[in-house]
Each structure stands twice: as structure tokens, then as C-alpha cells.
């Protein structure tokens, strides 16, 4: 069967940290599918005046097809998605999600897995942990958070994982010494980082200085599209012009107009939505295009990138 969208019902909502809410999603009909550790789904939110589509990691047991759980942090500069989830969504509401996709899977050849989570970046690791434990893999979880905002699931993790769980609460002044952590790992260790860009860059920098092989470092950024200035986009084939307001991503504006553009991560990472630019200068905000491709200026990742000026013409 081909599955485009899955209808789910919100079965429970729980405040798991001051700024983080967990949503339990059960299928409206049929079963959900098991998924691989690190998978995410896109949640479609029927907000007014326009809907939002955000990617969230699945944090439930990957073999459990009865229920998916996601956790949403209320973003200060939310374009509306996280605010909608926090303020509008109630138990019993129906939402649409995509089937799970995975851009952050564990490397099963690793001799040890070093998981580094920042804040709500704990979510993909919640699905790693049961799988790692099941196969008896070596791992450590290092969890950095601010208990006044985040730090979801830390008591549960500490009691379940024991000495394999390390907590660093910045609001209590407890910091993680990355140099010490990365400097003392056995050969064949793989690092996985999920958290803000600053954490990812910090780990990468320390790892490079310590001579870590780059292919052993895996990361997933919170790469939700950021707001920007409004602009217009013209579709080359039809000449049609759409307005993209400051809080709408270019991809969302295209989708709202009924134009199908393939997408997966919606965070400028996976490359699925790459679109040709016919005219106008893009403001590149993705991590996918190479420096050369950016310099050529003839393609854009509409999920996160916008127009540098007032107008773009796309080959759509």
C-alpha cells in the first residue's frame, strides 16, 4: 500500500519540561508502522490563516506500532507551528502526519555509541536507547539542558540507564567538558549530536582538534525554517506569482498554492526540495548546497531558504 498521510488522534498531552510538551498520537484507523531509531515525521497543523508543517523526531519505542510520541519545544521566535501545538492542540484532536523517514540512523557497525543531546535534542535518542539496549551495544548518553526550560525525561533516563547517563544542567552551573569527553573514547566510537547548531559546531571543532575521523560524527540540527522578509515568487511555467509572507517558508507558500514539491526533512538538510532558480538572488539558509552550487546561484532549497531581494523566479 502506498501511504501519503496518516490520520492520527491526540491521545494524551503531557508537560515534560517547562517549555516542552509531549503528544501521544494514535492512529484514527488501522495501525502505525514500526520505525527505525532516529526517524521523524512531518506533522501537519491546521492553523489559521494557514497551516504549518514541522518535522518532529519520534521518541517512542521503535517497535511499538500502537502509538507514536513526539515532543515539541515552544520556540521563542515561533512562526506559529510550536505555538499552535502548545496552545491549540487538545486531547482528541485529529492531525495528519507523514510516514516516518530517517535522516539520523545509528551506524550499527560502531563499537561504541556516544550520544550527545542538547535540550529538546534528546528526542531522537529516546528511540535509539531501546534499540541499543536490545542489541547489547556499548553506549553513553550525555544530556545538556537548562532545567528552567528543557531537560525532559532526565529522571527516567537517569534511573533506567544508571552510570551510562550523564546530565549537565546549565541552570545549576553544570557544564560538559567536551575536550575531556571526546579525548577519552575508544577507537571505533561514533558520536551522535542532536541539539542547537552551537552544540553541533562545538563538538565538531573539538573532535577535529583531537583527530577524530569525520565519518564517525553524525548530527541532526534543529533546522526549522526561520522567519524573514516577505517577498514574491513567480512560477516560470505559468507566470503565476505568489506572495510569501515573513512567517511562511517558501516551500509552505508553494504547497499552500497547490504546487507539489518533494520534501523530507523540511530543515535544509536532505536535498529533496531542491528547485531551480531562473531569476532573482536566493538567501541560502540550508546546509545541503555546496559552496559552488551557492555561487552559481541557480538553485534553492525552498524549505528554509528565501529571497535575498523582493522577487524570485523558480523553474516550476
Amino acid at each position: 500500500m502506498t501511504i501519503d498521510k496518516i490520520r492520527v488522534r491526540v491521545d494524551a498531552i503531557e508537560q515534560v519540561a517547562p517549555l516542552i510538551r509531549e503528544f501521544q498520537l494514535v492512529p484514527v484507523d488501522g495501525e502505525l508502522m514500526p520505525f527505525s531509531p532516529g526517524s521523524h515525521v512531518i506533522v501537519e497543523m491546521p492553523d489559521q490563516p494557514r497551516s504549518h508543517r514541522n518535522a518532529y523526531s519520534l521518541l517512542s519505542e521503535p517497535r511499538d506500532a500502537a502509538c507514536y510520541r513526539i515532543a515539541v519545544r515552544l520556540q521563542e521566535h515561533s512562526r506559529g507551528g510550536s505555538r499552535f501545538m502548545h496552545e491549540q492542540v487538545k486531547v482528541g484532536d485529529e492531525l495528519a502526519i507523514t510516514p516516518p523517514a530517517n535522516l539520523f540512523a545509528p551506524n550499527w557497525g560502531a563499537r561504541k555509541h556516544l550520544l550527545i543531546a542538547g535540550g529538546v535534542g534528546i528526542t531522537p535518542f529516546m528511540s535509539y536507547l531501546p534499540a541499543l539496549q536490545r542489541v547489547g551495544a556499548g553506549f553513553e548518553l550525555h544530556y545538556l539542558f537548562r532545567s528552567k526550560q528543557t531537560g525532559a525525561y532526565r529522571q527516567q533516563l537517569a534511573s533506567e540507564l544508571g552510570e551510562r547517563c550523564y546530565l549537565y544542567d546549565a541552570d545549576e552551573g553544570i557544564r560538559c567538558d567536551l575536550g575531556e569527553l571526546l579525548g577519552d573514547q575508544p577507537r571505533g566510537t561514533h558520536i551522535y549530536i542532536c541539539g542547537p547548531q552551537t552544540l553541533i559546531a562545538g563538538v565538531q571543532e573539538v573532535a577535529q582538534a583531537l583527530g577524530w575521523p569525520t565519518s564517525h560524527i553524525h548530527f541532526e540540527a534543529f533546522a526549522a525554517p526561520q522567519p524573514g522578509y516577505p517577498f514574491e515568487v513567480e512560477l516560470n511555467s505559468s507566470g503565476r506569482t505568489l506572495a510569501v509572507d515573513g512567517d511562511t517558508s517558501l516551500l509552505e507558500a508553494l504547497e499552500d498554492a497547490g504546487i507539489a514539491v518533494p520534501s523530507l526533512c523540511r530543515g535544509g538538510v536532505c536535498g529533496q526540495c531542491k528547485t531551480r532558480v531562473v531569476a532573482g538572488e536566493p538567501d541560502h539558509r540550508d546546509q545541503f548546497l555546496t559552496a559552488d552550487e551557492r555561487a552559481e546561484g541557480n538553485c534553492i532549497m525552498p524549505c528554509v531558504s528565501r529571497a535575498a531581494g523582493k522577487r524570485l523566479v523558480l523553474d516550476l
Binding site: 520505525f35 510516514p99 516516518p100 523517514a101 523530507l264 529533496q272
Partner: peptide
């Protein structure tokens, strides 16, 4: 390769 790596579940 890029296309194949991004194939999600349920969409062969």
C-alpha cells in the same frame, strides 16, 4: 543515490 537515500516508508 540522493533520491534513493531519501525514500521514506510507505512510498516505494
Amino acid at each position: 543515490l540522493k533520491y534513493l537515500c531519501a525514500i521514506p516508508q510507505g512510498r516505494p
